[in-house]
Design a protein around this nucleic acid. Structure first.
Lengths: 137, 137
DNA sequence: CAGGCAATGCAATGGAATTGCATTTTTCAT
DNA sequence: ATGAAAAATGCAATTCCATTGCATTGCCTG
């Protein structure tokens, strides 16, 4: 009998090692996107480099996506839609609360279609909104 | 008789020192958003810290804006619309070309209105699109 | 059981922002 | 104009992370 976490990893073609299951398990508990340092702190004793490499692998395999929220340090969150190694398809927006400093994915809010000038080819769309979140209003 | 560069600085309530005029002059020449390191290289002999502090001040006074293009290192570009110390109002989108690695402001392309869930207060909107630019197609 | 590949951990590297402090430049009142 | 005060500058040091090299450990298979 395999755990759910294990099955998720396998379905993404990721070898389900103990460390990777820990990292994924931790990510599943989160309601916001978190940094490598956040995970490191919440997951003692764990090696930062191993977490880093797990996240990198997860990202390559379409299990998590990295969010640039303007703070300079990337945040990670589980992909919600059907992403895979070929590409990420969860084009929802990210919201950074300047009060609580949390970065949220808002998957229910779709990114409006953007019209680019001629000849520009779009590969990826990132929409980041800063403001005050619903909990901090 | 004051130079144009000097007048721009004064109009933004920035003391027009020699270094700051150099930095602004360099920014005026650019067609893409550039990093601190780019400016440092293009502006020898210039002190990195001074450029850094100039950009920081320019940004606070609404003369330039910092662009997060996902590379981790911020890029800077002159504000086009009427920004000031109270806030930035040039909500155009930014385009990062994964071929030439340039980051462009596309002021002519407006960001569509985004509907957020209740209670979220919006302060700032950043739309970053990655792809291939018109010159690299 | 042995050999080999994958995963891990430690230590080191490297890039870049940021800051403290001493020095230089500019401003301003006299 | 001139000297004191304030602002700007430059250097060196710090700090913070991501990233990588390499040696070790763990796991899987023949």
């Amino acid at each position: 009998m395999k755990t759910e976490v294990e099955n998720i990893l396998i379905s993404k073609k990721i070898n389900p090692t103990a460390n990777r299951m820990l990292v994924l398990d931790y990510l599943l508990d989160q309601h916001a996107a978190i940094s490598l340092t956040d995970i490191e702190k919440g997951l003692t004793p764990a090696n930062r480099v191993t977490i880093y490499r797990s996240l990198k692998l997860f990202s390559e395999q379409g299990l998590v996506h990295a969010v640039e929220d303007g703070t300079g340090t990337p945040k990670y969150a589980l992909c919600i839609e059907d992403c895979n190694a070929e590409g990420h398809h969860d084009l929802h927006l990210h919201f950074y609360c300047s009060n609580c400093k949390e970065t949220y994915c808002l998957p229910s809010t779709l990114i409006p279609k953007v019209e680019l000038p001629d000849k520009f080819r779009v590969e990826e769309v990132n929409l980041l909104i800063k403001g005050i979140c619903d909990k901090c209003v």
